[in-house]
Computed example of a mutant assay.
Amino acid sequence: MERRCWALIKSRSQQDLPPDTRSGPDIYDQLDKYFAEAARELGLAAPIDDIALVQYLVPSFNRYNAGAQSANRLLNYVNRHYVKRAVDEDRGWFRLTDVIETVAKNISFEDSREAISRVLREKKLEELKKWGYPDDGSPEDAAFAESCAEAASPPDRVVPIASLAHRRFRTEVVEPLLATPKIKGNSKAKHKIPKAPPGPNPTRPKGRLARAVKELLETDTVDEEERLRLATGLAKMLQVTGIRSDHLLRKRLDKYVASTPSSLSAATATAAPISS
């Protein structure tokens, strides 16, 4: 992936385009299309078997993430000149329109611009806490939480290049694997299947990734250290690509990782870290 990023960057640099708002949207759109294509290829190549799917996804995302970080560094001028300006123009992942109702309730015509900015900062902080930012978090914690929120944003929001890549991995790889298959039924009344009685764990069809995680956590064919390494990698992949913490699959993976002995968790964490 890094090699293909270099090719794209070289093709744009040969045109002697200045790093301003004219070339920024063009390169940004091309990068978005490139990341979408690269992620789509990874999704199409994913194996069918459950354990094989997990063993494929974790290293594939690690390589994809490394390419995204390389592109983010090499094209940082796009972040500085185009993305920053778009955020200043309220076209980023967090917009005034997202909290306009709250602002209207808490701000009067007599309030200053500083008061409005304070309300916006408070609402943004609330959103970052949903992505794991603690009350006494460091600037690095805030930056990581914001990158996750950026990856979770809709495609029309302008985000930094690394988050742009992670967002495309979510839309092209993760979400199709999380999708629950539809059951095709006969519409005739005599062929209708009675509804299952309500219960704590009703039987429902699961997406491919949910079935793969279930197999990973319950199988005896994978040793404990490898199981934890894969579960940790999947949990981090879901978080970095913008899957919220209240998603059932994230909750299950996070619970498993948290319940693992600390000595084994430390060994696994140092073996396969995922930068963001």
Rank of each mutant, 00 (worst) to 15 (best):
W6Q: 11
L17E: 07
P19N: 01
D20A: 06
P25H: 04
Y28A: 05
L31T: 03
K33F: 11
E37Q: 14
A39S: 03
E41I: 09
A46S: 08
I51Y: 03
V54K: 00
V54Q: 01
V58L: 06
N62A: 15
G67L: 10
A68P: 03
R73P: 01
D90M: 14
D98E: 12
D98A: 10
I107G: 14
E110C: 15
E110L: 15
E122M: 15
G132N: 02
Y133A: 05
Y133C: 02
A143K: 14
S147M: 00
C148V: 00
A152I: 01
V158A: 11
V159I: 00
V159Y: 00
A165H: 06
H166W: 01
R168N: 11
R168G: 05
L177H: 02
A179I: 02
P181G: 01
S187F: 09
K190S: 06
I193G: 06
P198H: 11
G199Y: 13
N201G: 02
T203V: 15
T203R: 13
R204A: 11
R204V: 04
R208H: 05
L209G: 07
A210I: 05
E226T: 10
R229E: 09
M237D: 09
L238T: 08
Q239I: 07
T241H: 01
I243L: 04
S245P: 12
H247N: 07
R250T: 09
Y256E: 01
V257T: 03
A258S: 08
S259P: 03
S265R: 10
A266M: 10
A269Y: 05
P273D: 15
